[in-house]
Amino acid sequence: MEWPFDDRPDLPPEAAAEGSVKFDPNDEWLKNASREQQIEAMRQWFYARFENPANCTPYDSGEGGYIFIHGGPHDPDDEIQCRFSSVVDYDIMEELIRDLWQECGDEWAPIDHDDWDYEDEVFSMLPGRRTDPKSMLDDRLDQIEGALTASTIATNFMNQLLHSAAITALEAYLWDTTAYWVTGDKSVLRLFVEGNKDFSGEKLNVTDVFKVMDGIEARVIEYLQRFVWHRLDKVKPLLESTMRIKFPSFDGFTTQINIRHDIVHRGGRDKEGYPVKVSADQVRVLTAMVRKFAEEMELELVRVYPDKGKESLYEGPEAPF
């Protein structure tokens, strides 16, 4: 199955600087990388530090918009050039900057808050119960469907936003589910590390074994944060090898994710420049597809983990982590 919408390349393990908690490119690698890889590395660096203010920044219409209580706003133009101007040519940085402007404008919020520790923040946001990912997905889909019903003026722009939100909800569900199991079941964590070439192919000195063991969970979470969750063709082998489940069919999602790509990355226009038309009924069909997909995945998880995840999938020696 082809995924023509996705022009974001994979990055090799050597792309990341050693010892970085949040993704930070290795400058020596970055200098010699292809244009596409340079853009992707800078994009991942930016996403690891800045977010859409709609996610967690207070909004006051009386004050004229968002109140950046944790610092900012941050302009991608300033941040990208400050970090990469000595490594990457300006025309390459400019291509990414324009893409980020189109995505969220020139006012982004910081992900790190002054009174939060980054690692503690990440782990505090992980689902606490196995039912949380599906519950959070249902809540989000209910909100999307409620917005369709409550809207007195149906516009193509609003439908585009809700369509994109449905795909984002699916991505969040896959991230939440995977993060829950790799942090909640040591056998799943071990399967993930052993079955993922980005980890299994890494050379390791004996003297570093315990250091790596102590930090392996945090490294896996950081890896999952950078994973492109809408690439279902890549999510499928990852989850099937990690959790030994049969990944639900994702027939029909390719077209929907392609539409979402045009909405988010092309300003709501297709490759030929024509506006992408999205109806309320199309959004409802998509939310129903996402619900069905998640329900089938939950049945698989119950089949493989009948006792709330306490029964180990790994039949070899006890996981050392």
Rank of each mutant, 00 (worst) to 15 (best):
F5E: 07
F5C: 11
D6F: 09
A15R: 03
A15W: 10
A16Y: 04
S20H: 12
S20V: 02
F23I: 06
N26G: 04
N26A: 02
L30C: 10
R35H: 12
R35F: 10
E36P: 02
Q37F: 04
Q38R: 11
A48W: 01
R49P: 13
P53M: 03
S61L: 08
S61E: 15
E63M: 15
G65V: 08
G65R: 03
G65Y: 08
Y66K: 05
H70F: 14
H70G: 00
G71H: 01
G72W: 01
P73E: 04
H74K: 03
D75I: 08
D75E: 06
D77F: 07
D77S: 10
E79T: 03
Q81K: 09
R83V: 01
S85V: 09
V88N: 02
D91A: 13
I92H: 07
I92P: 01
M93C: 15
L96F: 13
I97R: 01
I97S: 00
I97C: 08
I97G: 03
R98L: 15
D99L: 14
L100Y: 06
W101K: 09
G105F: 08
D106V: 10
D115P: 00
D115R: 05
W116G: 00
W116Q: 05
E119S: 07
E119F: 00
D120T: 14
E121D: 12
V122M: 07
L126C: 07
L126F: 11
L126P: 02
P127D: 10
R129G: 05
R130Y: 13
D132Q: 10
P133T: 08
L137F: 04
D138S: 00
Q143D: 12
G146V: 07
G146W: 04
G146E: 10
A147H: 13
T149C: 08
A150L: 15
T152Q: 15
M158G: 15
L161D: 07
L162A: 00
H163M: 11
A165H: 09
A169M: 06
E171D: 13
A172P: 02
Y173N: 01
Y180A: 02
T183W: 09
T183Y: 02
G184A: 10
D185L: 03
K186T: 11
S187F: 00
L189P: 09
R190Q: 15
F192I: 04
N196S: 14
K197V: 13
D198P: 03
D198A: 11
D198S: 03
F210R: 07
F210D: 14
M213K: 14
E217W: 10
A218H: 13
R219V: 03
V220A: 10
R231P: 04
D233I: 08
P237Q: 13
E240Q: 15
S241D: 15
M243G: 03
K246Q: 15
P248V: 07
S249R: 12
S249T: 10
F250M: 07
F250N: 04
F250T: 04
F253E: 01
Q256I: 01
Q256G: 00
I257K: 14
V264Q: 09
G268Q: 02
G268K: 02
D270F: 02
K271A: 07
Y274Q: 13
Y274L: 08
P275N: 04
V278M: 02
S279Y: 05
A288P: 01
A294F: 00
A294P: 00
E298F: 00
E300P: 10
E300Y: 06
V302C: 05
V302F: 04
V304Q: 05
D307Y: 14
K310P: 01
K310N: 12
